[in-house]
Structure formats: structure tokens, C-alpha cells
Amino acid sequence: MFYIHCPYCGEHREEEEFHPKGEAHIARPADPENCSDDEWGDYLFFRDNPRGIHHELWVHAVGCRKFFNITRHTVTYEILETYKMGEQPTYTAEHPEGRPSAEADQASLREGVRA
């Protein structure tokens, strides 16, 4: 059972308090009417299933009710980071040790950005 750090509550809580909501960073196309059927089908149904680093959307369902993202290793199940909506992951498949410029990208660190 996972032990998850909620980036909004600032605490580790038991997995029972959370719901997983699938792959993270799946943005709804800005102009659905101009998507082809294939593009819309990709958005609806197709998800990655990587062996290794995976970004997931979770919700602190019986806590603060906030949605946030988790970077999790699908083999070891290690949670490498949790981050707020609007932020970018530090650990990615391309940079398993952490992206060098990660800190500068964090929306929460930039003024005026809602996340």
C-alpha cells in the first residue's frame, strides 16, 4: 500500500485516502471540433504503459480533494515525487536522475500562475 505525499496538505498519508485517475498530463485538445476522429480517439482511449517512470494523476479524495501528479516507477513502485497541477515533473524517462532545469519550470515558483 502506497504512502503518498500530498503536495497540497504537505503530509504523507495512506493510499486509502487517494484515488488514482490515470495517466497525468493528458490535456483535452483545445479545439475538439477540429480534431480528426483518430486524434480524438487517441485522446480518449490511448495511454502509455511504460516499464519504468510513469506520471500519474491522483486525487486526495478523502483529504483536501485536490488533484495532483505522482511520478512513480512501475517496477519498484517507488514514488519519486509528487507535484501540483500545472507543474512539470523533475524525474522523467529521459532524465531518471532529475532534469537539470526542473526547478525553474515549476509553476508554483513563478509568480501569478494558478495551478
Binding site: 485517475k21 490535456a27 483535452r28 480533494r65 488533484f67 500545472g86
Partner: peptide
């Protein structure tokens, strides 16, 4: 309720 929240928080926070 969770459905409304997910759209508000992840797609349309504005």
C-alpha cells in the same frame, strides 16, 4: 462531485 472537481482543477482552473 469528483467529476466536476477534476475538470475544474485540471482543465479549467481559470
Amino acid at each position: 462531485l469528483e467529476w466536476l472537481e477534476i475538470w475544474h482543477q485540471t482543465e479549467w482552473p481559470e
